[in-house]
Design a binder for these strands. Sequence first.
DNA 1: ACAATATACGAACGTTCGTTCTATTAGTCA
DNA 2: TGACTAATAGAACGAACGTTCGTATATTGT
Lengths: 196, 196
Amino acid sequence: MQKGEQTRASILHRAVSMASVRGFEGISIGRLASEAGMSKSGIFGHFGSKEALQLAILEFVVEDFKLNVIGPALREPTGETRLRALFANWLDWTGTELLAGGCPLVAASVELDDQPGDLRDSLVEQQESWLDCIRRMAQKAVAEGVFRDGLDTRQFAFEFHGIGLAFNFARRLLQDPKARTRADQAVDRLIQSAKA
Amino acid sequence: MQKGEQTRASILHRAVSMASVRGFEGISIGRLASEAGMSKSGIFGHFGSKEALQLAILEFVVEDFKLNVIGPALREPTGETRLRALFANWLDWTGTELLAGGCPLVAASVELDDQPGDLRDSLVEQQESWLDCIRRMAQKAVAEGVFRDGLDTRQFAFEFHGIGLAFNFARRLLQDPKARTRADQAVDRLIQSAKA
DNA sequence: ACAATATACGAACGTTCGTTCTATTAGTCA
DNA sequence: TGACTAATAGAACGAACGTTCGTATATTGT
């Protein structure tokens, strides 16, 4: 059977956009149904519960993130170049038309921080692996002698991620046209100080 | 009349905690009523609408922020000391028992970035003035010769704020015990690079 | 083409939501 | 103390929520 998976995917696509704008708690099966021109039960049947739908959304987003952010970066030369590509891909990705309301992972990070459950657990796991991905790339730069010996790469990842959060904030809430420039400048400074 | 304002304040206190945990959209008059041991209409009467309640919550939080974060910092000597106090106060404040679910302003920043209305407008205004507060303190340090001449103080504020966001993320989502150390270290680096 | 099954609908469920009324109680001021 | 008003309760509203169920319609594999 494939018709089902097809509509399931198109529902998910819509759901991701909705979650991006209204948050994970803000998606509703009823609204999703009317947007998709389907009945509530039609939507519901594809997932079995709202929580399962939310998990599917998260999984979908993470997959898209790996595909469009991490994957392309891994095809760049290691070290500084790869890290800069990772950062640029991340910021570009949050501007994708799929993510009409900005990075859902950033939004979920503050939305779910006090909501225990599978959804939160899954997000934590993903975000930890994201920080670890940054850390490993920085570690590689250390191994290659591009970054200084003894660099605290976890600290690097912490700050790297923080710049992305600041970008998201400036771009989406303040609608600051200089948000991207600011973020790039901050990363420049971070990388610079990782060298000396 | 003062009995009214008294209960209104105690309702708001509870509402702030609720918003801190569940977000601004997550507060409900019904739940607030049962927590406070009052009727829904009893709560409702104090505000007139849910949006007015949300605005009152935001106002309450901002007032508390000014009182406990900005105020004490202004009593410190200008320049680097004041900036460090501002940062420490900010991070400490987010650990207050009132703010059980972390900084509501950070949460609101990502929750409201796509929800046009008075609430968003009010938040944007507050956050812009927050960034401006940081900027002015940095500017003062420049004027005093502590920070280098020609420092981009808006950039400084962008990164300063970003470190706070990263702290919130590491602390609340990842429950990283080193979150505070990481944040302090990042600020050290920021201030250091503002000097040379 | 036929049987099997996946897919979707429509109606109804019990809750909860914000909001609006009408009373009744409690507090304040003369 | 008495008159007035503010404060709260309680019931009801229409709408939206997630979920369940029985039924009809497509789609599939043979």
